[in-house]
Design a binder for these strands. Structure first.
Length: 198
DNA sequence: GTGTGGATTATCT
DNA sequence: GATAATCCACACC
């Protein structure tokens, strides 16, 4: 299976956020184990004008510097003193836009997922939530800025995109401070899917 | 089922 | 010094 090409990520961020639903995120761990998850929930962050977006604040070489790369790179940051979150950068270089991956449906053998998420009591908690997903897939700042189009260590595969009627939208999570941008419908998830967070 | 608070640190004011 | 794109445990209903 081939990694999704650069052109996939160079489209408008909202388009990519919707089109990522149903696609497959693949993570090859250092020990060679490969984990695959079907993306079921995303959020779009629309660059410096979007007051909920990390590129709307702070220096360009600060925490969010990877977000200024060309589409198809990873932006992984650390927050709340203990959690990581994984984003896919979108659009051309210097756009400062990205899609936050909020939840995946684990595919294949669940044992390696459980091994990394011993606290998850229910299967549905294995990767529902941006920080849970990062814990399950062992994503941290070592992979910040990684090129997702090389098919190495961390990449995306075509899977099966969702038809529009299976996609539901909602305001983004945890961005109440962002004024008019807080209420915008920039969160996308699969309708009636048990693997979606909250 | 709902609500509250604690963990823990990079980043910016 | 405050805050953050969060999660979990535990209390209480």
């Amino acid at each position: 299976m081939m990694a999704l090409p650069r052109s996939f990520f160079l489209r408008p961020t909202r388009t990519v956020a919707r089109d990522l639903l149903g696609r497959v995120l693949v993570r090859r761990l250092p020990d060679g184990v490969e984990l695959r998850g079907r993306i079921v929930e995303t959020e779009a962050y629309l660059g410096p004008k979007d007051l909920a977006c990390h590129t709307a604040r702070g220096p360009k070489d600060g925490r969010a510097k990877s977000m200024w790369l060309q589409g198809g790179h990873a932006y992984i940051y650390f927050t709340y003193g203990m959690h990581h979150c994984f984003n896919v950068v979108t659009g051309g270089p210097e756009r400062g836009e990205a899609v936050l991956i909020r939840a995946v449906e684990p595919l294949g053998d669940l044992a390696p997922w459980r091994r990394r998420r011993p606290k998850a009591k229910r299967e549905r908690d294995l990767a529902a939530g941006p920080a849970r997903l990062c814990e399950a897939l062992a994503l941290d700042r070592a992979l910040d800025g990684h090129d997702l189009t090389c098919g190495d260590t961390l990449w995306l595969e075509a899977g099966a995109p969702l038809p529009p009627r299976r996609i539901q939208s909602a305001p983004r999570v945890g961005v109440d401070y962002a004024g008019a941008w807080a209420g915008k419908m920039l969160r996308f998830f699969e309708k009636d899917c048990v693997w979606v967070s909250g």
